[in-house]
Write a protein that binds this DNA or RNA. Structure first.
Lengths: 193, 193
DNA sequence: CGCGGGTTTGATGATGCTCAAGCCCGGTGG
DNA sequence: CCACCGGGCTTGAGCATCATCAAACCCGCG
């Protein structure tokens, strides 16, 4: 069932296994949430009360720029955490929207409940440390890549690092995520090979 | 003396004060390191054994791209931590160089010693959590800004967020940090006002 | 005085954006 | 079953932004 993938994720990231008791604690603290395609998980202006672990589906995080078009900052699929970190930790209104690109299943928890749980389950603390670490490294790389590589290189990179994304998200969303227009991505794919 | 600024930093980030005993533990664990201008703190290929808290001076983190020119990924001044995170946490060779842009004073500590210290000083754990949090948020914003704004906007943004940088680093390094060429930055400054 | 790093200026070209139009295709209702 | 609609993708022409390369300039310092 859906908690299994969360248990596996924790074990993987914390490099330690969790006990049956801990599993029960987790089941009590995280609750399932189902979102239909196109349904919001977080809306611009609301506080990101929950962080959600995706067990099935796909989501995107975006904001509207001054011209009013969507700028996608993150794409999420199974085994990703969906939240606006700034809003979630500081409990302040978010500038982002997060919605479901497919029918999606999540396990959600509030900041307070997560803090409680971390006191009881050391593996969770370690998991978050490792996540933060990898996240920081990935962010550094994505930034460097955005600055130094041209559109085509970044697309190739995404093909290598996240081929699933290309399958599951429409091309204009991939383009936005890469920081280019849909027209450029279209031409670029044509030019390859 | 130099430890004061580290104590203040910890108190600030952990939103709690530290005891005299904890201060002593910190003094024993972190040791001072002096770097002359242009001296390396970390060289490409070496493991980033230490993380360093800067009490005085300025540093930069960069790598060499295929064409062989320096690409600056981070600039550091007082109250910043200098390290290659990926190398420091995983103890693997770094792809980056970090060197001093001025005569610089640091307080350095190894990963193992830091881990020990964190077991004894809860405020350190909290400090790191808050640092990671702010870091992730800042990285998100810097990425969004790089993707969506043009060179001039990004320069203005830096002027607002880190005016000290503009004073202390030569213009061609600022340009590299912003992801533009020195020529573009030069022209852009001329065009403003 | 002259060297050298940093900065500026100019000319040219590549990359990717904008706007507008057309196309493809799956779904819906007549 | 077909016609139409709409979303997503493609194509084209023109343009803005920025990189590149080369040369000159500026200024502090030996």
């Amino acid at each position: 069932m859906m908690y299994e993938s969360l248990f596996n994720y924790i074990a993987d990231y914390s490099r330690s296994s969790i006990t049956k008791d801990e599993e029960d604690l987790i089941k009590n603290a995280f609750r399932p949430k189902i979102l239909r395609k196109n349904q919001y998980f977080l809306q611009d202006g609301d506080v990101s009360k929950y962080t959600g672990f995706i067990t099935k589906g796909a989501m995107r995080q975006y904001y509207l720029n001054k011209k009013g078009d969507e700028v996608i900052v993150n794409l999420f699929i199974e085994n990703y955490w969906a939240t606006d970190r700034e809003s979630f930790f500081n409990l302040k209104p978010s500038a982002y929207n997060i919605d479901a690109c497919e029918d999606t299943e999540l396990l959600i928890i509030t900041r307070a409940d997560l803090a409680e749980l971390m006191k009881k389950i050391p593996a969770l603390v370690e998991m978050i440390r490792v996540m933060d670490d990898r996240h920081a490294i990935a962010a550094q790389k994505r930034l460097a890549s955005t600055i130094n590589n041209k559109a085509e290189d970044r697309y190739e990179e995404l093909l290598r690092s996240n081929p699933q994304f290309i399958q599951r998200f429409p091309q204009h969303q991939i383009a936005s995520y890469l920081g280019i227009t849909k027209e450029t991505l279209s031409r670029l794919k044509k030019a390859r090979k």
